[in-house]
Amino acid sequence: MDMLNKFTGGSSSKPATTTTTQSGNKPDIGDKVFGGILKKTGHDSQVSESNREKITDGVRGFYEKTTGKKVNPKISN
């Protein structure tokens, strides 16, 4: 977790805030990592929340289709 916080610019001493996506679901780890990547690269304001969800869902679907394995619900819902 410290590695993820270091990558996304967070701190392990700060409590994590829980936000919801536009669809009303809590963002999963995949959404948070993708958001952190966008923020670090400066593209955070260019991608809407609904497009982020579509992209992460597409990546999850691609992974499941190519490997034949389901993604753990803790990582992606």
Rank of each mutant, 00 (worst) to 15 (best):
T20I: 09
T56Q: 14
I37K: 14
T8M: 12
G10F: 07
N77C: 00
S50D: 11
L4A: 00
K39I: 03
N72A: 15
T66Q: 08
T56H: 02
G30D: 04
P27C: 03
S45P: 08
G24V: 10
G68Y: 03
S76T: 01
N77W: 00
T56L: 10
K40M: 05
K32S: 06
K6V: 00
K32N: 06
T41M: 10
K65N: 12
G68K: 03
K32W: 06
T19R: 11
D57C: 03
I37P: 06
G68S: 04
V71I: 13
T67P: 01
D2F: 00
I75A: 13
Q46S: 12
M3I: 00
P27K: 12
M3D: 00
T17F: 06
P73M: 01
K32I: 08
H43S: 04
M3N: 00
S23R: 01
V33D: 11
D44H: 08
F34G: 02
D57E: 15
G10N: 09
T20G: 02
S48G: 09
Q46V: 02
G42C: 07
I37H: 07
P27S: 02
P15D: 10
D31Y: 11
A16V: 11
I55G: 06
S13D: 12
S23H: 00
T66C: 08
T66G: 01
E53V: 13
V33S: 07
E64W: 04
G35E: 03
K14P: 09
N25Y: 03
N72D: 14
G58M: 11
D31F: 05
G58T: 08
P73Y: 02
V33C: 08
T8P: 00
S11A: 10
D2P: 00
Q46M: 14
R60P: 03
I29N: 11
N51D: 15
G36F: 09
